[in-house]
Amino acid sequence: MKKRTKRLLPVQLDGYKPLREIVFETLRDAIINQTLRPGERLMEIQLAEEMGVSRTPVREAIRKLELEGFAVMVPRKGAYVAGISIKDINEVFEIRGALEVLAVGLAAQRITEEEIEEIQRHLIKETEETEANNLRSIVEIDTTFHDLLYKAARNQKLLQIINNLQEQLHRFRSASLARPGRGMVALEEHKKIIEALIARDVDLAKQLAKTHIEKAEQTFLLSLEKQGLYTDED
């Protein structure tokens, strides 16, 4: 059997995180950035060797990847990186778009001055990381930006529903923001949304949020199409 080219670095231990969680995050990031591509088999022994760990945390990480939709288990064959279908993408973005519009509309009515100031400080950091083209930080900051909007909506049930989508959204967000130029465009879209919130313009805020998600989906699809990473299967 031909051995897969080594692409993962040894994991760095963290005193605050269990090893299985570090291994999971390493594999998840490798799937998100396409180091491990859809349809590729996840071989416990090889992955363990590359990351410098035993097979046990790798096995546990693969189980978690399967639970969160990043991997699929094929009977008598093993685990594989999950593919992404057009149907999957459309369904997730349909849900995200509806939830985002609702959240931003509520935030325009309920956001406090302190929260506006917090988001504005956040945008300064987003600007710095976007100009530095630091993808990992951009993804984390983008996630935090939307989390702050959801918090400002003050609807706990809405927040719970959005949280259920977070892992899939993380995968999609990373691929979208990785496309050249998208980070800067997203930053400008964020600034316009905040301006609408400051003005308490509910309709404008909702429209900007809708456009923001639609553009994110379009960029994500273009990114996957260029790399041949999605299928038309249901």
Rank of each mutant, 00 (worst) to 15 (best):
K191Y: 07
L204D: 10
G181E: 11
T231Q: 06
V139N: 05
L106F: 08
I141D: 06
G15M: 08
T35P: 05
L197K: 02
D147M: 14
E25T: 05
I124R: 14
E44Q: 13
E167R: 06
R37V: 09
N155I: 03
F172P: 00
I45P: 12
F220Q: 00
R96M: 08
D14M: 12
L197S: 02
I194A: 04
E44S: 10
Y80E: 09
N164I: 06
L158N: 05
Q156L: 13
R7K: 14
A216V: 05
T143M: 14
L135V: 10
L165S: 08
I45M: 15
L42K: 05
S54L: 09
K226D: 15
S137E: 15
A209G: 07
Q120V: 08
E188Q: 15
A132P: 07
I84T: 10
I22H: 10
Q168A: 14
E44W: 05
I111R: 01
R121H: 13
H122N: 07
L158Y: 06
K2C: 14
A103C: 13
G52A: 10
L204G: 11
F220N: 00
I116Q: 01
V11S: 04
I45Y: 15
T219C: 14
I95G: 10
V139H: 05
E44F: 08
T5P: 02
A205I: 05
T5I: 15
V104G: 01
L102A: 10
R28N: 04
L149F: 08
H190Q: 12
E25M: 08
S85M: 12
V53H: 00
G105W: 00
V74Q: 15
Q207C: 13
E225Q: 15
K2W: 15
Y16F: 13
Q168G: 09
E118H: 08
E60W: 13
I198A: 05
E118V: 09
T219R: 06
N134I: 04
V58M: 04
E189I: 01
A98C: 12
V139Y: 04
L8R: 01
Y80D: 06
L208P: 01
G97T: 03
G228Y: 07
L187H: 03
A79Y: 01
G181Q: 11
G83Y: 08
K64Q: 10
E66M: 11
Q109N: 12
I213R: 00
E225W: 15
Q120L: 11
T127E: 04
I89G: 03
I45G: 14
I141M: 13
R154A: 05
L47Q: 02
E188R: 14
E117K: 15
K210P: 02
K77P: 02
Q166W: 04
I194N: 02
I194R: 01
V104S: 02
L177F: 01
V53N: 00
G39E: 10
F145R: 06
I138Y: 03
P180Q: 14
M73K: 12
D14G: 10
D203I: 04
L135P: 02
G39N: 10
L221Q: 12
K125P: 09
Q34P: 06
I194L: 14
N164Q: 10
E91N: 15
H122M: 09
G78C: 04
Y230L: 13
Q46S: 11
S223P: 03
P180E: 12
G105Q: 02
T231W: 07
Q46Y: 09
G228W: 06
G69Y: 00
Y16M: 13
D201T: 01
Q218Y: 10
L204I: 13
A103V: 08
T143S: 15
